[in-house]
């Protein structure tokens, strides 16, 4: 069992937890992910590591409720625990490798974080700050109430730009609009990291391709085991089929086939929707609507 030391809601449907997992905390690096499983009947859910404390032996995760298992996870409190918590999985971010540090220091790096993608961007920016690398961070959400980590990010980013789609906080517009505005104002970047919903990463990549800024994205496809065994997370990068769990999760964004990745992500929408509906409606849902198979 892996006990939860802290649990808090960051924004609508977005939750943060510190989990005791000493083996994972001892070996993880920014860019890697964990798989959590709430109990015997839960799904294995991949989550990018948001922060880690090697001495305390803890990992910070941030997740959004999307299906039955994450909805049940949201109800956990400090003192509760996960039955399973495994990692670190995937390859660390290339930016955060000591051996690349001299090269990294020469780069003008911009991060673009969208929605819950702010969480996995944080440890990278923090690591870079600790290693004396300057960064620009553009973090955005649909509206002010969905923003989180603004204070934390302010402490580690050299330049922070906060955006909201509706203009309720910070720059009025999307991350791509903000990046264009910075470039128009004369700033130059030669490396971009974009993490967020696939549709956002797709449009960031479209823009950075025009601006000729090499861009790394962190993919979050459907996974089962997370160790390279099932192939559920396969995606097309350039001409090659890659497994996000062992070859990624970070890839060259200009080579990723986002349309196909988005289609694959929707593969279990119907099944997940049913499980979620059954959980939300509990005993009040007796089927018979003709849409859900009738038994849930």
């Amino acid at each position: 069992m892996y006990s939860i030391l802290k649990a808090e809601q960051l924004a609508d449907k977005i939750y943060l937890m510190d989990v005791k997992a000493p083996r994972v905390a001892a070996s993880c690096l920014p860019g890697q992910f964990v798989i959590v499983k709430i109990d015997g009947v839960g799904e294995r859910i991949p989550l990018t590591i948001c922060d880690y404390d090697r001495e305390a032996g803890t990992i910070t995760i941030v997740f959004q409720t999307v299906g039955a298992s994450t909805m049940r996870m949201a109800e956990l409190k400090a003192g509760d625990s996960f039955e399973d918590f495994v990692g670190p999985l995937g390859l660390p971010s290339e930016l955060c490798e000591e051996e690349n540090l001299e090269e990294t220091k020469k780069k003008k790096i911009v991060f673009i974080a969208g929605g819950v993608g702010t969480a996995p961007v944080y440890p990278q920016v923090k690591w870079l700050k600790e290693h004396g690398v300057d960064t620009t961070v553009i973090m955005g959400s649909r509206t002010k109430d969905l923003l989180f980590f603004v204070d934390k990010m302010e402490k580690v980013a050299t330049q922070l730009c906060v955006t909201t789609d509706d203009g309720s906080y910070g720059f009025h517009g999307m991350g791509t609009n903000q990046l264009q505005a910075l470039v128009d104002a004369g700033q130059t970047f030669d490396h971009c990291v974009a993490i967020g919903p696939m549709i956002m990463m797709k449009f960031v990549c479209k823009l950075t391709k025009e601006l000729e800024i090499p861009t790394v994205v962190s993919m979050n496809p459907i996974m089962v085991d997370g160790t390279g065994m099932c192939g559920a997370c396969r995606l097309v990068v350039g001409d090659e089929v890659k497994f996000a769990c062992v070859d990624g999760p970070e890839f060259d964004g200009h080579l990723v086939d986002f349309d196909q990745a988005m289609a694959r992500q929707a593969q279990y929408k119907t099944e997940e929707g049913r499980a979620k509906l059954a959980l939300e409606e509990g005993d009040t849902h007796h089927g018979g609507c003709g849409h859900c198979g009738g038994d849930k």
Binding site: M229, G231, V241
Partner: peptide, 23 residues
């Protein structure tokens, strides 16, 4: 790691490795 054939359409929704399906 599961093997695939490398034929067109293999990344479509509804194509699984036996490992994924059985797991």
């Amino acid at each position: 790691l599961p093997r695939f054939m490398g034929i067109p359409g293999e990344q479509a929704n509804g194509v699984f490795s036996a490992n994924e399906f059985l797991t």
